[in-house]
């Protein structure tokens, strides 16, 4: 298996967000919202940092 960097980021974010949501919140609705928020933060921060590194390296 040889995923791209971004595919690996998405898989990592998905699995980690599920665990964070379940372990950090009490009710199903809060778990879902927190998990979705973590997923957005994981992927969003990866995209922002990637662009930042790209611009710095130019």
């Amino acid at each position: 298996m040889n995923p791209s960097h971004f595919s690996a980021v998405l898989l990592f974010a998905l699995f980690a967000s599920v665990v964070f949501g379940i372990t950090m919140r009490d009710t199903a609705q809060k778990m879902l919202r927190y998990g979705a928020w973590c997923f957005v933060l994981f992927t969003g921060s990866a995209i922002v940092l990637s662009w930042a590194m790209f611009l710095i390296a130019r």
Binding site: A8, L14, F15, V18
Partner: peptide, 15 residues
Amino acid sequence: LLASIGGMFFLGLAM
């Protein structure tokens, strides 16, 4: 949890 943690572990092995 089993699907997420197990999936992550075995995907890591597959990579």
